[in-house]
């Protein structure tokens, strides 16, 4: 069982040879493949992360723009509503004023005509009374 002979050194040499061969055909190329792959994955991952960050930034920017736009249109609506109310109030006031002035003018005209009529009436009353008086006195 324990007979040592030239098998020992030959086996050692053979093993070193195997290690050298495997170093060339196995360890080096496959290590390179594995490391290339992990580099590739790492760079891809970094790239993807960068792109994700960019996309998130864009989304944030769009969201803020959207919020800005919403604020603007709400402000526009409020302003328009205020304008409309103002115009409506103004128009109402104008119309009321016009109606008032028309009424006053009419009233004044009415008063004038009433006065004229009264005057005419008074003259007529006077002339009639003179006539009545003349007729009555004529008999006398």
């Amino acid at each position: 069982m324990f007979d040592f002979d030239a098998t020992l050194p030959l086996m050692a040499v053979q093993f070193l040879l195997l290690a050298a061969i495997l170093n060339v055909v196995f360890y080096k190329p496959l290590t390179k493949v594995i490391e290339d792959r992990s580099d590739y994955i790492r760079s891809n991952e970094a790239d993807a992360r960068e792109r994700l960050a960019k996309a998130e930034n864009l989304a944030k920017q769009y969201e803020s723009e959207l919020a800005e736009t919403r604020r603007q249109y709400q402000a526009t609506i409020v302003a328009a509503q205020a304008d409309a109310q103002k115009i409506a109030a103004q128009k109402t006031a104008e119309a009321q004023q016009e109606a008032q002035s028309q009424r006053e003018a009419t009233q004044k005209e009415l008063d004038q005509q009433k006065q004229a009529a009264m005057q005419t009436l008074e003259q007529q009353v006077e002339s009639l009374s003179h006539e009545i008086l003349d007729k009555l006195l004529a008999g006398v």
Partner: peptide, 14 residues
């Protein structure tokens, strides 16, 4: 091959 003492001693000496 590892059940021969020569092989294992060779590897151990290496």
């Amino acid at each position: 091959p590892t059940n021969d003492i020569n092989t294992t001693v060779a590897l151990a000496l290496l």
